[in-house]
Amino acid sequence: MTDPEDRPFTKEEAARLRTYPAPPRELEDRVVGALRRETKEPSVESGFGRTRVIAVAACAAVLAFTIARWTAPAPVVDRGAYLLLVQDGPGDDRLSAEEASQRVGEFAAWARDLRARGLLTSAEKLEDGGEVLSAGRTAPLTDADRSIGGFFVIRASTPEEGVSIARSAPNLRHGGRIVLRRLDHRTR
């Protein structure tokens, strides 16, 4: 007794499958309670508009870079260029205000140090929004896409130095990731 459209169950059975299971009654208050707890952090907006720690940290890096650029000399050593994509760690979007502030400070200090050593070329923060484009389709960002909060371009004299610099990124201590890629200038 199957559906003529070749379903293994009938339309009536499908309709019954849509009647259960019902969410437990207490789940509504539980979800509302969780949302209320998220809004209790004074410096963090609830839901939408929550500033990612890494994005804020990348912004701090940009600020450090901008302030330092007029005082530090440009690097004279010919070094390879590397892209560092900064990715959130698990739970980075649930930090307390104090934790978020600490992370921002760590990133800003790291960026200033890189600049002082002549290693930082640029740093940018990414906005939360965006989309994924493919042939004939536009899709929302996945969580993985969204976890990238910013990037740095650094200079290193060897690949080993590039790895060493990337491994010093403060987000790695908190479960985050750095995607390290060398810029290919051969096509220029």
Binding site: P21, S46, F48
Partner: peptide, 30 residues
């Protein structure tokens, strides 16, 4: 809840946890 329950193994506790997570994530991006 129905979709999550069926995709996540048919357990009420897991489905409830996931649905809560869905709404929290949605609220951050709305």
């Amino acid at each position: 809840y129905r979709i999550v329950w069926r995709l996540a193994g048919g357990r009420d506790e897991d489905a409830a946890d996931i649905v809560q997570d869905v709404w929290l994530r949605a609220s951050r991006r709305l």
